[in-house]
């Protein structure tokens, strides 16, 4: 059966993701013997979301995406998709913000989140556009057990957010976060069945870090304990929900898209197209 991966196409760099997904699928079919046919679609309404087995929320302006999602009646279906049905979802930059259970430095009056990752995200952490940058990233998950090269991944950070805190896994909303000034939280949802629960995890895995936090903090005179494991968290995964604060879709490097499609295949349990 065809595996349908949707890309949320309300605003932002959704076409770039679709281009890389197609290339990644070709790679899997030609080099890894994946037989399952893939279909990639733009998601602008609830019907298109319902057709999707997995979803990417692209980079864009998170306030715009959540506003248009609310106006288009998509906010609740998205929460159902990620948190109730627990289908594989990946968010880049704005997508990471929307998938966080808590976020700060939001616009006045806060903004709506989808949730799914027990983390607090700091919006525009690295600053304005003149502070945007390119950095080569060492991502251990790309090296694990396959033949793709161990070359660093080109990380493009555009007014990027960072994962500021890993939150405890809780039932219901993140109460402590809700009471923190200037922080918004996602509404609570319960996984619908055993299969959805099994796709969840109480543990947030740190998938990538950007070294240099110590230097950055020292430069502005902040107090940093050098004994701490310092480095900005720029990629996290919890069960089948994945988030990156950088933009693989702005590169021509397909490795993360290949990796993510493998995760999708594992989650739907179908590499041979026989589901």
């Amino acid at each position: 059966m065809t595996i349908t991966a949707g890309v949320l196409a309300l605003q932002g760099a959704f076409l770039e993701h679709l281009v890389l997904l197609k290339r990644a699928a070709n790679y899997l079919q030609q080099h890894e013997g994946v037989k399952a046919p893939f279909e990639f679609i733009e998601v602008r309404n609830a019907e298109q979301l319902a057709r999707s087995d997995a979803l990417i929320i692209p980079g864009g302006e998170s306030t715009t995406i959540s506003f248009v999602a609310a106006q288009s009646g998509l906010l609740e279906p998205l929460r159902e998709f990620v948190k109730v049905s627990r289908k594989p979802t990946w968010g880049t930059c704005a997508g990471l913000i929307l998938l966080a259970e808590a976020a700060n430095a939001t616009k006045k009056g806060g903004q709506e989140l989808i949730g799914g990752l027990d983390v607090r995200v700091h919006r525009n952490y690295f600053g304005r556009q003149i502070e945007s940058f390119h950095a080569d990233l060492d991502l251990p998950f790309l090296k694990a057990g396959d033949s793709t090269s161990g070359a660093p991944f080109p990380g493009i950070f555009i007014r990027a957010p960072v994962v500021e805190k890993i939150l405890p896994s809780v039932d219901g909303i993140q109460k402590a976060e809700e009471q923190t000034a200037g922080t918004v939280v996602a509404p609570s949802k319960t996984a619908k069945d055993e299969q959805a629960r099994s796709a969840m995890s109480s543990r947030v895995e740190i998938m990538g870090k950007l070294p240099g936090r110590l230097n950055k903090a020292a430069a502005v005179g902040a107090e940093v304990d050098a004994g701490d494991d310092v480095g900005d968290i720029i990629a996290v995964k919890q069960g089948n929900v994945f988030g990156t604060s950088f933009h693989p879709e702005l590169t021509s490097d397909i490795r993360i898209h290949v990796w993510w499609l493998r995760q999708v295949l594992d989650s739907v349990g179908d590499r041979d197209g026989v589901r």
Binding site: A9, L10, Q11, G12, A13, F14, L15, E16, G59, G60, E61, T64, C93, A94, Q129, S132, F133, H134, I156, F157, I158, R159, H247, L250, T251
Partner: peptide
Amino acid sequence: FAVKAGLAQMLKGG
């Protein structure tokens, strides 16, 4: 240039 053009790509559809 990818970083400069990248912000414009983030504005697309907006």
